[in-house]
Design a protein around this nucleic acid. Structure first.
Lengths: 244, 244
DNA sequence: TCTAAATGTCTATTGATATAGACAACCATA
DNA sequence: TATGGTTGTCTATATCAATAGACATTTAGA
């Protein structure tokens, strides 16, 4: 770890930069031998800052539930995880990470109907203004939120998808009930940005965190678009894997 | 734009949060009609902050060369770009974005030989300690840095790759000269993190910026690993596209 | 049971961040 | 050329971020 110095006067507080770095180190397994973060005085020396600054960083990580400080002993690592999320022609949320966690769940946050914008119409290959069903969903792994997605479906084929999804908790199953036995990922676009307010709330992130944004188009086996979605993943909890 | 409020007391200064948001809006094309950012007083109202805070944000964007303030007129948008970088079985740097820019270039920053770590050995399917060639390269598009990569090659097959790369400026061409007529992408892993000091320097980023990290394995047509690389992209300049 | 090592708490000080207000300088245009 | 709208600059004040030092409290182990 350490090695690189942290930057001052950048608009990002030192304690936050250090918190991000320590979180990365934990996820990387740097402290697996002891199961503890190095002592505050050692970290202060490594990062070249005051011990109080380190304490602010560790307090932020404790707030996230990643570490837990015990007086007299040290700062214990409570949780480390970065789920590997495969992206392929057969990308599905629960299948992809199913073997990495005990339980995956998908929750419907909201749903509604709206007319296709120019951008959405282009993606789904329908006319602008075509009625679409919009689903807002939250993907969880072991009761921790991992991703939050907005999906659009052509309303003529999938008018009842919100209902079906609510009962099944799975897009794949909902598609099956609505006459789409199988579907494939056509294209995925990946970007990264800072988390906005909604991300913080839904994904239980700490402010300043990073989200990976995946915009994806799924089509049925006749290559007709059935779903366009924008998913936002907590960047410190996931990794995308593309196998070719 | 706007809509979402910004967060206070998060360790990330308001001016930086606002700068990031305005940069995103510019890249999204929100101000294309006028070619200008809204007046400072309007932005201050929208974000619910003092005008001076907006000025700090715009000053940061001006420092990046994204906007240019003109007294009496307004703040002009100088540059907006986000390159689309395709990831497929045949992923290559210059080919992928070649049609989006006038010129792509790849520069050799450094090279050396090192013994394979456990992790590298696993990826390249060689024994730990096997000699590897390491190349540090910088990818440019229209003279602006886009990515910075560290690549490892088995030294027995590619001992001279640094020399060949220096003259050709292309991994693909270097492989060809060294007896690998073609190669394919086996797997790509994508994560996102805050830019470190080296990123800032090499990619000309502003502190606190985000980098997309792609770890990739390439193999020859006999499926023998030939290259493992870790590339870091300026997140506000690129987008990954996975076509299935 | 003593001691070393670790986290917890407190005070004080400095610099960066953010707000507030006022006014100057400049530009486009009526 | 007068005016409204815009960026540029200055002063003042309050809060957050970071440093510095001292000492208390807890734990594990000699």
């Amino acid at each position: 770890m350490a090695g690189q110095k942290i930057q001052r006067q950048t608009g990002v507080a030192l304690w936050r930069q250090i918190a991000d770095r320590i979180r990365t180190s934990i996820n990387h397994g740097d402290f697996d031998e002891t199961g503890m973060v190095p002592p505050e005085t050692v970290l202060a020396l490594q990062f070249g800052v005051n011990r109080h600054t380190i304490r602010s960083a560790l307090a932020a990580l404790a707030q996230e539930g990643i570490v837990r400080a015990v007086q007299g002993r040290g700062t214990l690592i409570e949780r480390k995880e970065r789920l590997s999320f495969p992206i392929s022609r057969r990308t599905r949320f629960s299948q992809g990470i199913g073997d990495q966690v005990r339980e995956t769940r998908s929750v419907l946050l909201a749903s509604g109907e709206e007319a296709a914008s120019t951008e959405l119409a282009k993606q789904l290959k329908v006319r602008t203004g075509t009625p679409l069903i919009r689903l807002e969903t939250l993907g969880q792994a072991d009761h921790r939120p991992v991703s939050r997605a907005t999906s659009w479906f052509p309303a003529d084929r999938f008018g009842d998808i919100a209902e079906v999804y609510r009962t099944t908790g799975s897009i794949t199953k909902a598609f099956k009930e609505l006459g789409v036995p199988d579907y494939v990922r056509v294209v995925t676009e990946i970007t990264a940005t800072h988390a906005d307010e909604s991300d913080l709330a839904d994904l239980q992130l700490s402010p300043g965190a990073i989200v990976l944004v995946a915009q994806a188009l799924n089509a049925d086996l006749d290559n007709v678009p059935v779903q366009y979605s924008i998913s936002r993943f907590a960047a410190d909890r996931v990794r995308f894997t593309i196998e070719n």
